[in-house]
Design a protein around this nucleic acid. Sequence first.
DNA 1: TTCCAGGCTTAAC
DNA 2: GTTAAGCATGGA
Length: 301
Amino acid sequence: MNDLLFELPLPDHFALGACLEYMNRSPLECLFRSDAEGVERLFIVEGQAVLIRLTMPADRPQRLRAALLYGSLPGEAGLAWLARYIVEWFDLDRDLAPFYKLAAEDELLGPLLQANDGLRIIGIPDLFEALCWAILGQQVNLAFAYRLKERLTAKYGQSLEWQGHTYYSFPEPEVFHEVSMEELCALQLTRNKARTVLEVAHLIAAGALSREELLALPSPAAAEQRLLQIRGIGPWTSQYVRMRCLRDATSFPAGDVGLQNAVKFLTGMDRKPTPAELVEMSARWRGWEAYATFYLWRALY
DNA sequence: TTCCAGGCTTAAC
DNA sequence: GTTAAGCATGGA
């Protein structure tokens, strides 16, 4: 089966190849499977497992093609949901021209722009997944964060075997209703991570927290404040979620150690810049701080 | 063994 | 409001 589902028009300054290079950065990623030409992901659409592959068709290079590898054809609403997810995933609605104009003149970003031409911030459209990924990534190295996500996903998510590979979808928050801290700690989550994941799962499952609600707040800063009210969610996590889920291009995780290391490496400083120094530096990227961050991260891999 | 990793909370100033 | 210490875990 390889049915065309739909094709999405692509904006300027988009290159699937550059996005895939980012997505291929870790072999430990469990929520999609990517290669040099495309990416495959398992979705649960209207309760049905649907395995999708995204590519750029050679005959229509300005389009992103979604093909159905396995599962039943979703209905109209399901297809619209999928298309919206993909737009959010690759940030296709954004006009990147202003960022490219600004970054081309920038000492640090200029070279990164060329090396990653057409890269967009790869989003995490689902709020629960985004929060969990940020929580799991707090204060641990990325390899370990990927292992934690894989364990959480394998234990509580849905999966599909197809052509010798196992595809996973991230667990729904409702699944954690009866899950205990001890159960999550057995997966090597610290108590703080376990407690925060459960708290977030309960809030979302109860309807007390949602992406729509956060986006409806008067400002991204208000959304950040709402997230900060949750115990276990600090500045880094809320800024990270603003950046990768809420799609706020001005979010700037100045406390991020990866960002600090990238700037140290690119500037040749003999120490990591402080968060205050990074904030000061980010003035020249105003309006595009999140994109600057995402491109700077690329200097590390 | 020590230090670091895409931090957070709490307590003290 | 700012800073310091404690926390917990794997990787190099």
